[in-house]
Design a protein around this nucleic acid. Structure first.
Length: 282
DNA sequence: CGACACTCCTGATGGC
DNA sequence: TGCCATCAGGAGTGTC
């Protein structure tokens, strides 16, 4: 499932194909993609636009045009393919450019979205309402993470998945970052020390950078724009490795459900939090 | 406001 | 072999 490294990979690969091109055709096959906006209006708004720049914010793809901004989200199973066969399965949107390039958005589960904002500032506001600091930027460090979680009683795993705490981290990289920092996924946010937060912020950064350097992780549906798989899934320390030995100590990796997500950790390297002395005061 | 259940969707998986 | 029921999960919404 695409997280920050996967979206960054796609963005970098799409850039040379799209930047500077004019949208010649847009066919939205699944109206859910642009919901609640209507299909005809979205198609009409984008056709004729010149694509100026492709950026990434959290897990969102940000396409700036000469008149408005398109925000795409791949969610669980979305892919963007360039030059794929015209009968490639699960096509939801087909984009044709003025040089004949065809970009196909494919998405078996139909969770992916695309919304066009005629007003660039409105698109920026939409993102800023939903996203905290970029984990690879200067605004995110141990102090920022500590400030964001120090009053929260949710398990730290849930907080890492909260896009307002840090933008772009999903289930894979949350597990990997927690293992890096030797912090148990069920530790409440308000019980992390400053030094643990510093280590965890570093773990987030290291894991994401490793993921980008590896071309992302292919689990289920993620593909590069040419259909090739990423390979970071082969480098996971703990994620999706239940029962396999922890790379640090050899103890078996444990799988449990935390914050409603399959969560993998080494309970020897990441000691379980002890119960609070007193029940919550409320 | 925080925490959490529920919802969307469909291929994969598991039980019998 | 076939047919269910269940699961996975990012993010939006609703509830307390």
């Amino acid at each position: 499932m695409p997280e920050l490294p996967e979206v960054e990979t796609i963005t970098r690969q799409l850039r040379p194909h799209l930047e500077g091109r004019i949208v010649e055709g847009l066919e939205i096959l699944d109206p859910r993609w642009c919901d609640p906006d209507d299909v005809a209006g979205t198609e009409a708004a984008l056709v004729g636009r010149r694509i100026l720049a492709l950026q990434r914010r959290g897990k969102h793809l940000v396409w700036r045009t000469d008149a408005g901004t398109l925000l795409l989200h791949l969610r669980m199973t979305g892919t963007l393919l360039v030059g794929a066969a015209d009968d490639v399965p699960y096509q939801r949107v087909v984009l044709t450019l003025d040089d004949g390039t065809v970009v196909r958005f494919c998405d078996p589960r139909r969770f992916g979205t695309g919304r066009f904002f005629a007003d660039d500032a409105a698109a920026a506001a939409y993102l800023d309402d939903r996203l905290g600091p970029e984990p690879l930027g200067d605004a995110f460090d141990g102090a920022a993470l500590h400030a964001a979680v120090r009053t929260r009683r949710s398990p730290i795993k849930a907080l890492l998945l909260d896009q307002l705490v840090v933008a772009g981290v999903g289930n894979i990289y949350a597990d990997e970052a927690l293992f890096f920092a030797r912090v148990h996924p069920q530790r409440p946010g308000d019980r992390l020390t400053r030094s643990q937060c510093a280590l965890l912020a570093e773990g987030v950064r290291v894991s994401l950078e490793h993921g980008i350097a590896s071309g992302g992780a292919t689990i289920d549906d993620f593909r590069h724009v040419d259909g090739v798989e990423g390979w970071f899934q082969n480098d996971f320390a703990v994620h999706r490795r239940a029962g396999l030995p922890c790379p640090a100590c050899g103890a078996p990796v444990i799988k449990r459900v935390v914050a409603g997500r399959g969560t993998y950790s080494c309970d020897r390297c990441q000691p379980r939090p002890r119960a609070r002395r007193r029940p919550a005061a409320g």
